[in-house]
Design a protein around this nucleic acid. Structure first.
Lengths: 202, 202
DNA sequence: CGTTGCTTTGACCGGTTGGTCAAATCATTG
DNA sequence: CAATGATTTGACCAACCGGTCAAAGCAACG
């Protein structure tokens, strides 16, 4: 293990390589299904070398989840209470769908974790996530009270955005098996646009 | 292994016990994360006894998926082209949400499998599932052509029903962490009712 | 009751897993 | 170049994994 100094270029590069490979494997196999050997092979490094940069398999997983939770909620944070209500919501939907298209591995890592009971992030969900969601639901409620958008249960509105957008990353195989060669994301964005505009039209 | 006769009462009971325990473990840990020992402990039987009734861990998983695929699509099959269009769709949504409430383990088993690339059911998805979905999409299109419901991309309409309903089983932990003590399913049904009626109103 | 065949399990096996360690190699700096 | 510390790895280990097997237990029936 290196001493407690500023990380060298080699350290930065190798840590990044390892986390990228770990994301590949964890998102495809789940935590217990992933093996350090497979991560090492994907990263093009030896197994002991991985464990030189991270103290354990668990630590790699933690590092990924920590980094993920920060960025995963940015699109929701960016929903601005002072903006045009319907366009703010549509912007959130669009950003979230783009994340499913551009970062499907992150989406599946998260899905795997929650599917299996969120043992490692349960606190973050019921504190940080809940706090953020509750505050955005308050915003949604003022928009509904002002008549800018139609009335619906605000929490379930947010759940619907998560579910509809992440579905295209998490269930990608199924979506493509049913759709055939057609690209899912173009049709999805058009569909979601219609859905939310019709549902929320005052 | 028993000979090729009608299964005894003991066989029926033990097979059922094993599959129930296997569903518990596979749905919570994924295929690779599940261990035969844990399934055996959950079932209250010894490991060699499980492997007396099923030739392998893989066989238990297959038996579950086979049974699941048959029943999982029943709600969609039941959508009747001759019925009242909007009520047929709402009935499908209601049945699917009830399945998430009553059979969350089955939903999570399916989600785990698809998340990890559907290695064991890919053919079933791109043949049986696709055939069924395509035929139901044709029905939806006649309803849209007749003006009974508004025009939307029929495949994405079905994806939306899958995603919105299964979300409450697959992401149950997250939903409850955010919602608190409130029961998710009552609010969900009301929300989905509003969503689809507004989106599909001609 | 005795025999037959279904059921159950303790002990075991080869392969894999996460993780360790000492030794070798490499980069950096004086 | 010499020396110091960062980096890399082959060999190894104990624990665990899926699966086997022979022997024991048990129920059913003549």
């Amino acid at each position: 293990m290196p001493k407690d100094r500023a990380p060298t270029r080699i350290q930065q590069k190798n840590r990044a390589t390892i986390l990228d490979a770990a994301l590949d494997v964890f998102s495809a196999q789940g935590f217990r299904g992933a093996t350090v050997d497979e991560i090492a092979a994907t990263a093009g490094l030896s197994k002991p070398n991985l464990l030189y940069y991270f103290p354990s398999k668990e630590a790699m997983h933690e590092a990924l989840l920590e980094r993920l939770l920060d960025t995963w909620l940015d699109p929701l944070r960016a929903m601005d209470g002072d903006g045009e209500p319907l366009e703010e919501i549509m912007g959130y939907v669009r950003r979230k769908l783009q994340m499913s298209r551009d970062f499907p591995r992150e989406s599946r890592l998260f899905a795997n974790e929650v599917l299996q009971g969120a043992p490692r992030i349960h606190d973050a969900l019921s504190v940080d996530l809940k706090t953020l969601v509750d505050s955005k639901c308050a915003v949604l409620e003022t928009w509904m009270a002002s008549g800018a958008i139609a009335r619906v249960h605000p929490h379930h509105l947010i759940f619907s955005i998560w579910s509809l957008t992440q579905h295209y990353a998490d269930f990608d195989v199924q979506v493509r098996a049913v759709l055939g060669p057609e690209d899912p994301f173009d049709g999805a964005m058009a569909f979601l646009d219609t859905l939310y505009r019709r549902m929320l039209r005052p």
